[in-house]
Nucleic acid binder design. Sequence first.
DNA 1: TCCCATAGTTCGGGAATCTGGAACTAACGC
DNA 2: GCGTTAGTTCCAGATTCCCGAACTATGGGA
Lengths: 116, 116
Amino acid sequence: MRPMIHPAMDDVRPEAILHALSDPDRAAIFAKIMRAGCVDACSAVAALGDRIIPKSSLSNHLKMLRDAGLIRSERHGVEVRNHSRWAEVEERFPGLLPAIINAYASNAACRTPSID
Amino acid sequence: MRPMIHPAMDDVRPEAILHALSDPDRAAIFAKIMRAGCVDACSAVAALGDRIIPKSSLSNHLKMLRDAGLIRSERHGVEVRNHSRWAEVEERFPGLLPAIINAYASNAACRTPSID
DNA sequence: TCCCATAGTTCGGGAATCTGGAACTAACGC
DNA sequence: GCGTTAGTTCCAGATTCCCGAACTATGGGA
């Protein structure tokens, strides 16, 4: 198991963030991590409601969020805890994350909710 | 040549916008259209500096921006004019577009500029 | 210490998407 | 009609995504 890589904020690119959050599942997972402050992968999946998401897919989603600089993951015993890097990202790209989360939320408000 | 489809703003989804703008080329093209107010495809390509972008790719990029609800395209004689739907998108997802354009701009400020 | 359960990662291959050259089409001017 | 300009569509190769199966790491027990 390779060690997890977290990019320095200076290396974080807007296209990576947009791409990571352009998938509603990933956006929902990120929103959950963000709101909860810290979350392990198992409970992250709960963000998707009753849909079953394969754990390999979940692992990939979290890796994409990590590579995009959106979350920081560290192993604690048998589980991995995921923290959002909200403050750092917010400092580098002010307003970006709130606008995206907001857009999803306001979209969900008039449809089947994907971010609760 | 099929008629061009423009989604109603109510059907515009945040994931489509994020995906469309998660490509730096497309983001640069959109930024150019946005700033210029109205632009034909040929001059849109100028947004990418001296890089040569195949016209089939450019056509695809514009189609993705169109399908995402970001631009409106209409044929005027032999050329197609592209207008940004900024105001409509801004009303539906306040702050989203400015934050994204800003993120690219501030990223370009400390690297090779992709959006001038 | 060995075995098991838990929590996750990596591998691999089929599906879906992206890219760009070549061919095509629509509009205009002559 | 013919040529030119501006752009679209087609399609095949490259790339990326998805997810089941196999694997790895850690923490308990017995």
